[in-house]
Amino acid sequence: MRAQGSRLCLVAVLIAVLGSPGVAVAAATITGTVTFAGKAPALKPLAMDADPACAKMHKGPVPAEMLVLGSGNTMANIMVWVSKGLPAGKTYPAPKTPVTLDQKGCQYVPHVMGIQVGQAYRILNSDGILHNIHTLPKINPAFNRGQPATVKEMTTTFAKPEAIFQVKCDVHPWMSAYIGVFTNPFYSVTGSDGKYTISGLDAGTYEITAWHERLGTQTATVTVGASDTKTQAFTFGVK
């Protein structure tokens, strides 16, 4: 009897949750593809000869990370986030899963990432050589710590939201990554297919911003209804 009772309770809660407007409406999605217009410039590969240990990890030249294009000129490493229109005063708890930054082949993987305030930032050293992680924020305190060969993992968090800033390695000057700290989960980074997806939004009108490390930002305004999926494409180009 007890088991049945609790099952009943669960069903009741589920119905209540699904039926309540807050959650039921938070199903809108904005998605889209970011493409590069024009002829892609030829970029110099990363020069890793300063540290032979790094150069040894790669067979050929390592392509630059500044501009990564997929087939059809889709752009990777574009951060897209909701910059305006979120309900004021609503808080979003930080996910329990950490955001991971790996150091592999003397490169930061991923190159661009978003994180929520308070979410664990896990820094891995897959290379097994000395690296240094130096964040260059304006608002949060800078994290500047060496990671010796034998230290495989370090963790930190960010206490305040902040616009995208750079992460550098003071040992290997070519190593570079970007991170944005958000108060909400409504951000996305494109892969080489150029696709981003921001889901779980309430119905409303939003301004979304797309950012590239060299080509700046672009904004667009999107209105979504409950459980809508809207598409918003961005195009970056070299002027």
Binding site: N132, R145, G146, Q147, P148
Partner: peptide, 13 residues
């Protein structure tokens, strides 16, 4: 502590 010696390994700082 982890900020100084994660897993007992000394950080350069």
């Amino acid at each position: 502590g982890d900020a100084r010696m994660p897993g007992g390994t000394m950080l350069p700082e």
